[in-house]
Amino acid sequence: MRNADAALEERLGHKFSNRDLLDRALTHSSAIPELRGASGDAPGDSVPRSDNERLEFLGDAVLELLASEYLLAAFPDWSEGQLSKSRARIVNASSLESAARRLHLGEHLRLGRGEEKTGGREKQTLLADAFEAVVAAVYMDSGLSAARELLQRILFEQALEGRGERIAESDRKSALQEFLQGRGQAPAEYRLAGESGPDHQKTFQIEVWINGECLARGEGSTKKEAEQRAARSALEQLERTGVKG
């Protein structure tokens, strides 16, 4: 297992001073009874192993802190609502699972036989929890800067690829809705203005209407993408000029 852990350390970009932290981060609770039984046969291994649940708890807090820090630096003009929603997207189970898969954490998990038989190495919850535990292990081993470097390389940069456009656009419709509601305006209306291209490669044109006026248009490979881009354009105009109450 040590050779396998060394390969994981290389992917993490972090060499542990305390390898026991990494062992614990990769150990699911289902493995504990078997590991404790095996420890009786290993000279010098008298301390029972513990699972990764406590590290997962700490890793969740480290993730929240560093994701907040990263978003504040990357998007200085965003509101608290935009920051909160984007942070939630960065640290949700799906995002953490993707990060765990980039690290091939499933290959390194220590699972009980029952969990192994039911495909535990591919379960989203186990992978997301293990990633949080590994973040905590890095933090405990070398501090906040080491955890920050790991998350920026493995999680944040992927979540914010394209200079943050993916997250920024994912918030545009809700941000526009909040902007209008805060000024007593009716919700925006999105209308399909046209589409072009073959069925397998269509481009959609969406108009966003506010107070009976077509304020902006957006294009995208899906209707949802086009709506988000139209909302972004509309919001930029409204933020520059304001809306009449």
Rank of each mutant, 00 (worst) to 15 (best):
C214F: 02
A175F: 11
Q177A: 14
D171C: 11
A186R: 11
E227I: 00
I210D: 01
G143S: 13
T118M: 07
A147F: 01
R113I: 11
G182R: 08
W209P: 03
A188K: 08
G143T: 12
G220A: 12
E225Y: 02
E149S: 05
E115R: 10
P198G: 12
E178F: 08
P198R: 05
M140S: 08
A193E: 10
Q152C: 14
R110P: 03
Q177N: 13
F204C: 03
A175W: 10
I206L: 02
L155I: 09
V134K: 05
R183F: 09
F204S: 01
R166A: 11
K224F: 02
A216Q: 04
K173T: 15
E207L: 07
G162R: 01
Q205T: 04
S145F: 12
K202V: 06
R229W: 03
T203Q: 07
G164F: 03
A175Y: 10
D129Y: 05
K202H: 07
Y139T: 05
D199F: 05
E189Q: 15
L155Y: 05
K123Q: 15
A216G: 06
G197F: 01
Q152G: 15
A128G: 09
Q185Y: 12
K223E: 10
A133F: 00
G212K: 10
Q201N: 09
Q177E: 15
E122W: 07
T125V: 06
R217E: 13
G218V: 12
A136F: 00
R229I: 12
T118I: 11
S145H: 15
A226M: 02
E122R: 13
R172L: 07
L111D: 02
L180Q: 10
E115C: 11
E157G: 00
K202I: 06
K173V: 15
V208A: 00
Q177K: 15
L126H: 13
A186M: 04
E225T: 14
G218E: 02
S142M: 01
K202S: 08
L180P: 09
K117D: 13
I210P: 03
G212I: 09
A159T: 04
I210G: 00
G184Y: 08
I206H: 00
L126K: 13
F131C: 03
A226K: 02
A137S: 07
R163P: 01
L111E: 04
K173D: 14
R121Q: 15
Q177W: 12
V138W: 11
R110L: 14
E116G: 10
E207H: 08
V135A: 01
K173E: 15
L111F: 07
Q158C: 02
D199Y: 06
R217G: 04
A226H: 00
Q158P: 02
I167Y: 00
E207Q: 08
L155M: 06
I206F: 03
Q185E: 14
R166P: 00
I167G: 02
R191K: 09
A147T: 03
K223A: 01
Y190A: 00
P187H: 14
W209C: 07
